[in-house]
Structure formats: structure tokens, C-alpha cells
Simulated scan of single mutants.
Amino acid sequence: MSYITSIGKYVGMMREVFSKPERFKVYYTRTIAEINSIGINSAGIVAILSVFMGAVIALQTASNMDSPLLPKYTIGYITRSSTILEFSPTIISLILAGKVGSNIASEIGTMKVTEQIDALEIMGVNSLSFLVLPKIIAAVFFFPFLIIFSMGLSILGGYYSVTSAGLASHEEFVFGLRAFFKSSDIVYALVKTCVFAFIIVSVSSYFGYYTKGGALDVGTSSTQAVVWSSIVILMANFVLTQLILM
């Protein structure tokens, strides 16, 4: 019963979030600020994770190619496919759920327990729309750029790891990158990314907005936001894969 109540509260919250904004100029300014906070400030950790993730994928693929029947370009092919289809959109989104989701939940939760949200409501401001909508727009707009950035760095990491180790030549790896490429794979990855971005912001905002108590409860809400965002992302990943690729 509690899960049904929580889903009902979540749906009601999202209805308020997408109500008509009072002043579009204010929302535009807040959206630009959120793009910087949510997106640009996450570029560093995305870059570091992507480079090493691609390097590990390529090295593991090369180390497991025991059969002489497998051509060397398979390393580039598997690195590209794994990165685009799963690792960049899903793994990076899970990492962002931890970084961005916890930040959103703690920010809104702190405003809730310090009665700043009540002050907004007293002034006649739709607090949910004012606080959450710019974050959703910023995440859904900018996360795909982060994931494309991640894909490029991951492939570069894989390229330099195997070529520097002498496990494949430049020509073999690049041929594998180009082999059997489908542009629909990029579309699939970016659709998943947009859905994951919405999940991260909306679920984290839900736990932050309905925080009750004090500072310790804000920490609890932040933890719950990360856990539930990750669970819902994995569930959505399964559903989207069934719908788009099957």
C-alpha cells in the first residue's frame, strides 16, 4: 500500500511540475544555471570514467580472443558496440544518479526542512515547478551531450590502450570501429539517456521534496534518491531495450 501511495504522490508531483510557469524569463535563467550545475560540472568525472572504461573494455576483449579465427578488428567492433549500446548511456547515467541525484535531493530536502519551500508557497510561487522543472529541462537537454562526449573518450581510451600494448594495429582497430555500424544504435543510446535523465531528476526531487525532519533526514532522503534512481534506471533500461531493439 505504501508503494501505491508513493507512486500516487509522485504522479501528483509531476503534474504540478509541468503546470504552466508563471514567468518564463525566470525559468530560462534557472535552466541555464542548472545546465552549468548538473551538466557542465559533471564533465570531469564523466571524462575520467569514460577513458578508463573504454581502455578496460578493449583490453579485456583482446585478452579473451584466444581463437586465431577471430580477426583483430573484433576488438574495435566490440569496444564500439559495448560503449554505444550499454556502457556510456547506462553506466554513466548510474554514476550521474549518484552525483547529480544526491545533490538534487539534498538541495531540495534542505530547502524543505528549513521552510524555504513554504516561503515560496506563501509568496504564491509554484515551488515544484520553480525548483524541479528547470532541472528536468537542463538534464534532458544536456545529458545526451555528456553521453556523446563519453562515447568518444571511451573509444579513444580503448584505441590507445590496445595500440600502445601492441594488441592491435591502428588500421585493425579503426576498421573494427567502422564495421557493421548502424546509426540507429546512437539513436537508441540517446533515447535511453533522455529517459534516464528524467528519472534521475524526478525521483531525486521527489525524495528531496517530501523530506521531513532535520539534517539527518536530508541525508536519508539523499541516499534513498540514489538507490531508487539506480533501480528505476535499470528497470527502464530493460524495458527500453525490449521496445527499441527487439
Score class of each variant (00 low, 15 high):
residue 154 S to Y: 03
residue 239 V to Q: 04
residue 48 I to R: 15
residue 114 T to S: 15
residue 187 V to R: 13
residue 237 N to Q: 06
residue 167 L to H: 09
residue 111 M to K: 09
residue 142 F to W: 15
residue 11 V to S: 10
residue 232 V to Q: 08
residue 83 T to A: 06
residue 178 R to I: 13
residue 92 I to N: 08
residue 191 V to C: 02
residue 9 K to A: 09
residue 9 K to L: 12
residue 90 T to D: 15
residue 230 S to E: 14
residue 17 V to T: 05
residue 197 A to Y: 00
residue 142 F to T: 14
residue 55 A to K: 01
residue 183 S to D: 15
residue 92 I to A: 13
residue 230 S to L: 11
residue 106 S to M: 10
residue 199 I to M: 02
residue 66 D to P: 05
residue 80 R to V: 04
residue 12 G to T: 03
residue 110 T to Q: 10
residue 37 S to I: 06
residue 169 S to L: 08
residue 108 I to R: 02
residue 209 Y to M: 03
residue 39 G to W: 01
residue 197 A to I: 01
residue 183 S to A: 10
residue 122 I to W: 07
residue 151 M to K: 09
residue 128 L to F: 10
residue 244 I to V: 09
residue 72 K to N: 12
residue 219 G to R: 02
residue 132 V to N: 00
residue 125 V to L: 01
residue 59 L to P: 05
residue 155 I to L: 14
residue 135 K to M: 07
residue 125 V to Y: 03
residue 43 A to H: 09
residue 57 I to Q: 05
residue 155 I to D: 03
residue 184 S to W: 11
residue 117 I to Y: 02
residue 167 L to T: 05
residue 68 P to Y: 11
residue 138 A to G: 07
residue 172 E to S: 09
residue 245 L to S: 09
residue 14 M to E: 08
residue 224 Q to I: 09
residue 218 V to K: 06
residue 95 I to K: 10
residue 163 T to W: 08
residue 86 E to D: 11
residue 240 L to P: 03
residue 183 S to T: 15
residue 57 I to K: 09
residue 107 E to M: 15
residue 80 R to M: 14
residue 46 V to T: 12
residue 193 T to S: 01
residue 212 K to S: 12
residue 70 L to Q: 11
residue 53 M to F: 15
residue 199 I to F: 02
residue 199 I to G: 00
residue 172 E to F: 07
residue 204 S to A: 05
residue 29 T to Q: 13
residue 93 S to A: 14
residue 156 L to G: 08
residue 126 N to Y: 00
residue 121 E to T: 11
residue 137 I to C: 08
residue 51 V to G: 07
residue 82 S to L: 14
residue 99 K to T: 05
residue 135 K to V: 12
residue 226 V to P: 07
residue 205 S to M: 00
residue 2 S to I: 14
residue 144 P to W: 01
residue 149 F to V: 04
residue 104 I to H: 00
residue 61 T to R: 05
residue 40 I to Y: 12
residue 48 I to S: 08
residue 216 L to S: 12
residue 12 G to S: 14
residue 202 S to W: 00
residue 135 K to P: 07
residue 216 L to I: 12
residue 160 Y to K: 08
residue 153 L to R: 04
residue 198 F to K: 02
residue 78 I to F: 14
residue 165 A to K: 06
residue 208 G to N: 04
residue 134 P to A: 01
residue 73 Y to H: 15
residue 120 L to H: 10
residue 75 I to E: 01
residue 199 I to C: 01
residue 71 P to V: 08
residue 58 A to W: 04
residue 86 E to T: 09
residue 60 Q to C: 07
residue 217 D to F: 12
residue 19 S to Y: 01
residue 80 R to D: 00
residue 123 M to S: 06
residue 171 E to N: 15
residue 103 N to M: 09
